[in-house]
Design a protein around this nucleic acid. Sequence first.
DNA 1: TATACAAGAATTGCAAACAATAAATCGGTG
DNA 2: CACCGATTTATTGTTTGCAATTCTTGTATA
Lengths: 251, 251
Amino acid sequence: MNEQLQPLKKPTKTGKTRTGTQDDIVYAHIFDAILEQRLAPGTKLSEEALGEIFGVSRTIIRRALSRLAHEGVVLLRPNRGAVVASPSVEEARQIFFARSLVEKAITELAVQHASDAQLAELRQMVTDERDCFDRGDRGAGIRLSGEFHLRLAEAAKNAPLVSFQRSLVSQTSLIIAQYESGNRSHCSYDEHNELIDAIAARDSDKAVRLMMHHMDHIDSKLNLEEDSASGDLHAVFSHLGLAKKKPRTAR
Amino acid sequence: MNEQLQPLKKPTKTGKTRTGTQDDIVYAHIFDAILEQRLAPGTKLSEEALGEIFGVSRTIIRRALSRLAHEGVVLLRPNRGAVVASPSVEEARQIFFARSLVEKAITELAVQHASDAQLAELRQMVTDERDCFDRGDRGAGIRLSGEFHLRLAEAAKNAPLVSFQRSLVSQTSLIIAQYESGNRSHCSYDEHNELIDAIAARDSDKAVRLMMHHMDHIDSKLNLEEDSASGDLHAVFSHLGLAKKKPRTAR
DNA sequence: TATACAAGAATTGCAAACAATAAATCGGTG
DNA sequence: CACCGATTTATTGTTTGCAATTCTTGTATA
């Protein structure tokens, strides 16, 4: 009577077998679902529904949602529940700016501090990433691409930057899933490999240059110029210019 | 019977009258107490005790502690409760590195985007800060000094950076409270004023130079070289050299 | 005397019940 | 027929109680 449908294993395909607390497991499941776009931006995340799905109480769900909100992939409106975040173009720009800043610093630090073991692990991740795209699993590919940057941050050995990077990568993945233009060739694993080479050679200038180019590359793949179809109805129909102003002149 | 001892007003002396949800109120109270060093690093934060103090349930306390843990001012150990964080020297270095990075970017952005109203508000904050130090309220001074940098980040108009800055400023305040050397003349409100002048003049180079100097100044006021008294008993008494090695040679 | 073990106490983790708030539907009215 | 308001419903916010884990302290033994 106490047994769950399934004792809630973590879904990550990356070999993370760490069987964390329920909290972490639910968090990871929702997180992955969002980043793999199985949960579209704007989707409402009902506490009760999620609790039933995962076989846990709302307390757990609530905490997981709180963590996700902290990372910016979930929007938590008071008394109105949680929805999958849908970054606006302006927010996307801000995130990219911050991320470029952080990636530059991380690259410089990684050149100084990355161990050979960490570099080997990064290479393995690039391989996994390529496999995903070859297999056609675009969602997992995007997620692994993000995890690559997160691991690189860990190699930089600066805890606050890692934490910030985690948030930025999550949101970036969301943006990519939301704004990426048609061609799916954003798969940048070769750029990742070049980057590892430069870091392994301890060539700071080259590594930074590659990273910046990589960022520009990702950015250029998105169509952030005009608002693509968003959930904002007002924005969608604003060009019609037939907004019904409330007839009451003063109140 | 439902009435509280005091309906939990926010403690901030900065005029933030926004009466948020209970969650926010408790969060702000603990936050300020830590930053003003009324709660020393290492202090255990019992959920039940705090709940009784604030007149709310453990649930609220728990959430507040979770937020504080996210910002790094509280350490949340599973099944072991929460304690006020006590950053190590290495952690302090990492935080300062990240913060210098972020402050530089924020300064550049603030030069571009800060409105006159925001600059006026910043000047007011510096005045308040000076008043605090004149009044001898060191704790509040440290906190206001941090809030100045947070407001400056808001003037930069980049939400992710603001969020990160909030975390960094909190931890920096904790570090200052923990590691500041004797002389209390760290009060850097004049440097803050100079900084505002440069930003108001839209002189990016000068503003950045002043900010970097300001960071170095704060850094130099700390004695991060040797571990000062921490909660680690082993470290405190290590010089005595009478550590009892466990007699068992192998096990 | 020091170590190992065990029982007790205290504290956190979790879940279900209760209360409050916002959305939605239905009915009334100009 | 459109618009405004009250009731109903659904969902979130909060409290309380129970279960599980950990820390402490006391006791026995080598």
